[in-house]
Write a protein that binds this DNA or RNA. Structure first.
Lengths: 123, 123
DNA sequence: CGTTTATTGATAACTGAGTATCAATAATCC
DNA sequence: GGATTATTGATACTCAGTTATCAATAAACG
């Protein structure tokens, strides 16, 4: 990551603008409105660099391929749309749920996924 | 599923004895203590048959390949061990969490995954 | 501007999960 | 037990996601 390039700037801008976890393919689709000839390999390469640099995090759920999002300081969970397959950040988790695993299990963190229709697809 | 075979009986017995969602590979590993020459293709075939027959359900989470478990009537969530990679059923969810997605999102169901160390691995 | 070389785009290669194929095996039925 | 045929085990294959390769491009810097 020694040089500033249109490709890297655009990929980061896509993640910033969407503000939700995106798959490599989604990133490509959005970014190609700015750089039509952008290649998928560049997206994967750039994701790797951003991960190494600690600028983004990987979000993997439910057997789908991983998504990537700019790091958030908040405790975030996710809504996963059954129609458009999009992932959306959901805040508001109080940190502790109103139930817990039994004695003996040492919970380090939890993830909650709401499944259904996002606001756009349910409209 | 016309004939009763040692393979099918063993695979079902493994799922019953473990009482938690198992990956095809886990099923193979457990079942091979009974049938050393059992093949992975038979595991996949048998899973498909049990799914069609409605005897088991598929549990998919967090980018891991799917696991399979005998159907439960309870609303179950899961604990996923960071060390042994095993999945465990966690009951006790009141059905509604103490936070929700914002207006506009239509939640059909939710999944909660606790991540950390299972009772065996934390001992 | 010209040189250097990191980066890119196109695409071939790889990977792991799951499926198809087919001869060998074994459950069922007489 | 013998015949029939569903099932099995071994393995080749497929597929989607990801990575490697390499010539062409374009940042950076004098």
């Amino acid at each position: 990551m020694e040089r500033k390039t249109k490709q890297r700037d655009t990929i980061f801008e896509v993640l910033r603008a969407e503000n939700r976890p995106l798959s490599p393919q989604e990133i490509l689709n959005y970014a190609q409105t700015k750089i039509p000839k952008l290649g998928i390999a560049t997206v994967y390469r750039t994701i790797k660099e951003f991960l190494l640099a600690g600028e983004i995090t990987e979000v993997k759920l439910f057997g789908s391929s991983p998504r990537y999002a700019i790091k958030s300081q908040e405790h975030q969970h996710h809504f996963w749309c059954r129609i458009c397959d999009g992932l959306f950040n959901i805040g508001g988790c109080p940190g502790t749920l109103n139930f817990q695993p039994p004695q003996g299990f040492k919970t380090e963190f939890h993830e909650v996924i709401f499944r259904g229709l996002c606001s756009r697809c349910s409209a």
